[in-house]
């Protein structure tokens, strides 16, 4: 097995809010290999985006990364001086943000924003950078890229802007891309088109990809492996088909069964009942217990990660039987 591009170990990020301290990312560990797509799934507020920012070292006060390692190509990024970290961002690790409408600076032209990215990392002239930017736009299927370069963000459609952001991420051929629900704001046909193109480009270049989403169906068609997050913790992880066919964690099971197409005919649609808990007062032990049909007294203690077979991990006292 090849060495992972990124290896995260025991990552923990806290926020000191006015109402108290909360742990948004709580002991998260995972690996992503070259050319591998890891789907990071969870409902809103489960800590997916904060995990991504923590990897990039972009947590601002009142937030703070309090523990863990983030190892990129064998180098631990935690404790790296800010300037060295800055050089990695956008170059070795690129992130595509959640909302394509808000990510590009509205008062700067597309070319300004792409060229500045290139010149922050490569010692090239303006013209050379412009050509790189143009090529990057062409690569993600943007028609007449030279013209688009001169546009302001508001002059482009949402889909175009998303492509621009994707192009910006791919431009410097990073080792790792963190894509935070890059397609949710787009309509379905454009979504699948962009998904397909990205997958192709990533495979060509052997780039590692963390694909953040709350939509399991997207993951099913795209990811190699899936990590399911709940209240800041990874509760289950495994190869995509295996995990979707035989979920071991009750939460994963609930998620899968809330997808209409996964529900066998005649069986009632069964969403995960209950509400997302507040991170400020999580239940003791398993955070999912109040919503879990299998919860019992044992769940008052915090479940540890345990291995269940081939590359599968689960954090539950009473995992569902394989094949259940």
């Amino acid at each position: 097995m090849t060495a992972p591009v990124l290896s995260v170990r025991g990552l923990r990020t806290d926020f000191a809010t006015r109402a108290g301290r909360l742990t948004a990312v709580d002991g998260v560990s995972f690996d992503v290999g070259p050319g591998e797509v890891l789907g990071l799934v969870g409902e809103s507020g489960s800590g997916k985006t904060i995990t991504g920012f923590s990897i990039l070292g972009l947590i601002d006060p009142p937030g703070e990364i309090v523990a863990g390692e983030v190892v990129l190509n064998g180098q631990n990024l935690r404790g790296l001086p800010e300037d060295a970290m800055r050089r990695l961002r956008g170059d070795r690790i690129a992130m595509i943000f959640q909302d394509p409408m808000m990510t590009l600076n509205p008062v700067l032209r597309i070319d300004t924003q792409l060229i500045e990215t290139i010149r922050a990392h490569r010692d090239v002239g303006r013209e050379a950078a412009r050509q790189m930017a143009e090529a990057a736009l062409a690569q993600v299927g943007i028609p007449s890229p030279a013209e688009r370069l001169r546009a302001y963000p508001h002059e482009l459609s949402g889909g175009m802007r998303q492509r621009v952001v994707i192009a910006a991420a791919l431009m410097l051929e990073p080792d790792l891309i963190i894509a935070d629900e890059p397609t949710t704001a787009l309509d379905v046909t454009i979504q699948s088109q962009i998904l397909y193109e990205m997958q192709r480009l990533m495979a060509e270049r052997n780039t590692a990809l963390i694909w953040i989403t709350h939509d399991l169906t997207v993951v099913a068609g795209l990811a190699h492996r899936v990590a399911v997050m709940y209240a800041g913790r990874i509760v289950e992880m495994g190869a995509v088909d295996d995990l979707l066919d035989r979920p071991a964690h009750p939460y994963t099971h609930g998620l899968i069964h809330s997808i209409p197409s996964a529900t066998p005919r005649g069986e009632r649609l069964q969403p995960v009942r209950g509400m997302t808990p507040s991170l400020l007062n999580l239940p003791e032990g398993c955070a999912f217990a109040p919503r879990c049909p299998r919860a019992d007294a044992a769940c008052k203690t915090r479940p540890e990660e345990r291995r269940i077979g081939d590359g599968r991990l689960v954090r539950c006292h009473h995992p569902l039987e394989s094949g259940a």
Partner: peptide, 29 residues
């Protein structure tokens, strides 16, 4: 606090560029 400032940082721009161009140009309005 805007996404585009964080995004500018996520692209590895220097603090001088982030503050001096991305922030400044918006507050000048």
């Amino acid at each position: 606090l805007q996404d585009y400032v964080k995004y500018a940082r996520a692209r590895g721009l220097s603090p001088v560029r982030v503050v001096g161009v991305h922030v400044l140009k918006n507050i000048l309005i």
